Structures are given as structure tokens and as C-alpha cells.
Computed example of a mutant assay.
Amino acid sequence: MTDPIRPSGDSAATIEAHGLTKSYGKPAVRVLDGIDLQVGRGTVFALLGPNGAGKTTTVRILATLTEADSGTARVAGYDVVADRSAVRRSISLTGQFAAVDETQTGEENLRMMARLTGQSRAAARRRAAELLERFGLTVAARRPVRTYSGGMRRRLDLAAGLVGSPEPGVFFLDEPTTGLDPRSRQELWEAVRELAARGATVLLTTQYLEEADRLADRIALLDRGRIAAEGTAADLKSRVGGDRLDLVLTSRDAYLKLAGRAVHHSPGTLTLGIPTDGSAAQVRALLDEIDPDGREIERFSLHRVTLDDVFLALTSNAPMSNAPTPNAPTPNATTPTPPEASAHV
């Protein structure tokens, strides 16, 4: 085994990956096909993509739960293979379902986690009280977790991940809002924002475009095991275009006449999207130019480019192959912990 790679104090990147590949099954199906990532310290980075794109597999490799077939990765300055234990001491991993004991109270869950990390009874009580206060759970501290809302359980799950981890720390959140109602999702978003504000580095995987748009400093769009695009939300939107004037035409002849200058087409509804800078002056000029007599446009609306547009423009329309689900056990797994369960490693 090679010597452990020690942290470099001057590196601005907390998570680095180069050329990660991973295949599953026989015959082998490649799930990751050369992933490169660099996540800056104290930022929120979103891996955005559909089911089967490779998001969970990427997180499992970075969290030392699975080894890549090829490539290298460092987390908190440590090599994920050569110094696995040091990586695990530096991170918290939260999967798609909260890993807390529903029969215990929130306080009991945190005190138990603290004791498991070797803290004394007194230190465990202090740490539990501190985290309950920080995550807004003090009032519910002595209630059984089964009475908590989805958002409260998720906040408790994040708190549990901090019990024994050095702060500000590195957080891997693998589709953490799956199954949550809108209010609970908002609660978790606030918790993630607070973590980042305190200097934590967060790598978030999600299928929710709004979630990536609202939370992430940078976004990587993962499609069929490859990074299709990366940048800030604004950067990605600029690759697709600016604003769009959506016109619903009154006839098929009018639709066909304008189709050549449109960037969005919906023949079923006779709707075309025409590029615009969004200013009132240009919108008026376009309407006057396209329909000077007021007979060919039934109605119009101004459409701001969203991550939905980016996603549709930059990812494949083809269905995913018969790649195994990332939640399936893998032959090179370094731990039996299933990826769909949270693991405070």
C-alpha cells in the first residue's frame, strides 16, 4: 500500500477527484466514465442528474464506501484509498433516508452517538445539547423521534453527523430531501445553508432542479456517467440562452412562418420561443415586427431560462441503459453499509 497522502494546508479544494470510473455487473456496465470534480472549501456543490446518472456511486467512492475501478480522489486532503480512516474521521454522510432510532428521543440519539465516538457521559450531554440548540430541536429534544416531522428527522440526522466530526467538516448529502414535503424540504435547506455559512463543505446530490438552483454555489450536471456541464447556476443558464418570448400563434401558417427563428418549439400548442434580452423595449419591438396587424399572436409570455431548460438542452434524451441501480450492492464495496441508508462515518 502506498504511504498515506497527508492534507495540504494551502489547498483551496476540500474534495478533488480525477478520472473516476466504475462499472458494475456482468457484462460490465460503466456507471462512471471519467469523473473530474473539484469542490472548494466552505462551498455547496451540487451533483445534478437523473436516476442512474452515477450520483450515488460518486458519493460512495468519495465517502470510502466503494473503490473506483480507476482514478484518484482526495477528501479533506486525504487519499480515499490510502488513508480511508482519516477520510472517515473528516466527513459526515447522509443518505436518502434518515438513520436515527425512532424509539429514542432526539437527545438520546445524539448522546448515544457521542458515547459511540468515545466521549464521556458529561461531554456527550453537552455536545447533544449544543447540537439540539443549533438545529432548532431543543423543544422536541425529549420527544420520541417517531413523532418528528420529516424535516426534523433530517435535521437530527445532520446533527448526528456532527457529533464526532471535526468542524466545520465535509458533508455528503445524497438526495437528502427525497420524500419530504415542501415545508420539510425548506427546513432542510435552511440547515444546509447554515452549515455552509459556518464553513462546512457540502457535496449535495439531487434530482431537484430548484434545489440545486437555490442551494449550490456550483453545479455539475451528471449524465450517463459523465459531467455534461459545470458552473454556477447563472453560468449554466447562459449556455442555453437568456430570456425567451413565448408566443402562442393563431394558425399553423403563422407558426411555420416563424419556426425558423425560434429556439423553442411546441407544434401541438402552436407555441414558439423567440430569444430576447427581456427588456420591455425589445419585447415591444419583437411583437410589432412579428405581428404588426395584431392577428397572428393569440397571447405571449416572457420566459426566464431555468435549470430545467439547461437540463433538457444538455442531457441525453435516450433512456438509461440497463445499468444496475446505484443502490445495489457492489463487488468492491469496502463496507456493508447500503448507500440508501445514512452513515455517520
Rank of each mutant, 00 (worst) to 15 (best):
E107M: 07
G273P: 15
V87N: 00
R142W: 10
A82T: 04
D217R: 05
V192S: 10
S92I: 02
R30D: 15
G52L: 07
A124S: 15
A53T: 09
V80N: 01
R214W: 01
L47Q: 08
D174G: 00
L173I: 02
V139I: 08
V202I: 07
L162D: 11
G9F: 06
L256F: 07
L203K: 00
S266V: 14
K55Y: 01
G179E: 06
A63R: 01
R155Q: 12
P166N: 08
R74K: 15
A141T: 06
E230L: 11
A341M: 09
E108R: 13
R261K: 04
T14A: 15
T72H: 07
P7G: 08
P166S: 07
I219Q: 06
A285D: 09
T206L: 03
L307H: 05
T21P: 04
T206G: 03
L204D: 00
W189Y: 07
A318S: 07
A343W: 15
P324Q: 11
T205R: 05
S11C: 03
D181P: 02
S70V: 04
D174Y: 00
F45L: 02
P144C: 10
V44L: 12
S316D: 15
G242N: 10
L287Y: 02
A82K: 14
H18K: 14
G54P: 02
R252T: 11
S8V: 11
D213A: 11
G278C: 10
R185F: 12
T147W: 06
A228H: 12
Q119D: 11
E211S: 00
V310F: 14
L156E: 11
T94K: 01
A86F: 01
P292D: 03
G77E: 04
A12G: 12
T330C: 05
S301I: 09
L20Q: 09
L221G: 11
D213G: 10
L47G: 02
G179H: 05
V310R: 14
G278F: 08
D309T: 13
D223H: 09
N51Y: 01
R154V: 08
D69Q: 08
G42K: 12
A122S: 15
V29K: 15
T72S: 14
S92D: 06
L32M: 14
E167G: 05
R252C: 03
S238M: 10
I297M: 12
E230H: 07
G77M: 02
L270Q: 10
T64V: 02
L258V: 11
G77I: 01
V163A: 12
L137E: 03
F45R: 01
A259Y: 01
A233R: 01
R239G: 08
A53L: 08
E190P: 04
M320H: 12
P4Q: 13
D79N: 05
P168W: 09
T147Y: 05
A123E: 14
G241I: 12
G231T: 09
G225K: 07
F171M: 06
